[in-house]
């Protein structure tokens, strides 16, 4: 909680009452009624891990995880699934769910009649997305460890790393949502996510690409998320990992600042 209010205080938008946690509480209550949806989110990355990692992995054998280090395919693909799940979860929460609350349920109209301000809305919703993401990544990490594809205790740091990915994508997702007009626009979000999911050195190494297009892949945020978690899960940690962290931190902070401003403009007319 204190972390939440510290973040809240740092934001340059009208003071709320530091009650963002009550919005998190609201979301937790709402999800008690729809727990199937909440729980079902755990399974997607696990299904991918077993399908591609284990089923297809038998056909592939070992893969170069960077720097000539060969690992079995499941160990290569597992961190990517964890990073991609963090991205997908955060984007779903901050776009689809947020849009519904904003435009249809009019949730924030009633919230803003209370002492809560736009800042509490932004911080509360992002905190909720992160908590939910933490549930998913923890479960996934346990499954991956049980499947024997986690190679190092560094992997514990993959949990905060996944939260960082979630923060970066949730903040940007929230900003984008404030511009959306109708459900049809969600197809464009899909258009940005799917190629990232498939092409960010998730399923096969960067070296598969021709030199000339590698920089495109390396420019995407998911590439950095995947690379960061892969280093941690394989215990292959060097100073270079900080570059990935820095990329995502900048994206997250810029996104939160912008999203909060946009939400204020949208709600306080």
């Amino acid at each position: 909680m204190s972390a939440v209010s510290t973040i809240a205080r740092a934001l340059p938008i009208p003071a709320g009452a530091g009650l963002a946690r009550t919005l998190v509480e609201r979301n937790a209550r709402a999800f008690r009624h729809g727990w199937v949806t909440l729980v079902s989110g755990v399974f997607e990355p696990v299904f991918y891990l077993f399908s591609l990692g284990v089923g297809l992995g038998a056909l592939i054998g070992d893969v170069d995880a960077g720097g000539g280090r060969m690992v079995e395919y499941a160990a290569y693909v597992a961190p990517a699934m964890m990073a991609a799940a963090a991205m997908n979860g955060a984007v779903f929460d901050s776009t689809f769910n947020l849009f519904f609350k904003l435009k249809y349920a009019k949730l924030y109209d009633s919230v803003l009649a209370t002492p809560l301000g736009p800042r509490d809305v932004a911080v509360g919703e992002i905190s909720w997305a992160l908590l939910r993401g933490l549930l998913y990544s923890t479960t996934f990490l346990l499954v991956a460890a049980a499947a024997g594809v986690v190679h190092s205790w560094w992997a514990l740091l993959a949990l905060p790393a996944a939260s960082l990915i979630g923060l970066a994508f949730a903040a940007v997702g929230m900003s984008v949502t404030t511009y959306l007009r109708s459900w049809q626009d969600f197809d464009y979000i899909q258009l940005a996510l799917l190629p990232m999911f498939l092409f960010s050195a998730t399923f096969y190494p960067l070296s598969t690409y021709d030199e000339s297009v590698r920089w495109v892949v390396q420019a995407t945020p998911l590439y950095h998320g995947v690379a960061m978690i892969r280093d941690l899960m394989l215990g292959d940690v060097a100073w270079g990992i900080l570059a990935h962290v820095a990329y995502l931190v900048v994206m997250g902070v810029a996104g939160v600042l912008f999203a909060a401003r946009r939400i204020e403009r949208l709600l306080l007319r």
């Binding site: 297809l56 056909l59 592939i60 799917l194 498939l198 399923f203 096969y204």
Partner: peptide
């Protein structure tokens, strides 16, 4: 249309390179 196309390119060509390079491939 685009999503199956993306899947085909990523899996078929990208991942396919790994599958085909391995002795245990198809």
């Amino acid at each position: 249309f685009l999503s199956p196309l993306f899947f085909l390119v990523a899996m078929g060509f990208g991942l396919g390179a790994l599958v085909d390079a391995d002795a245990g491939g198809l």
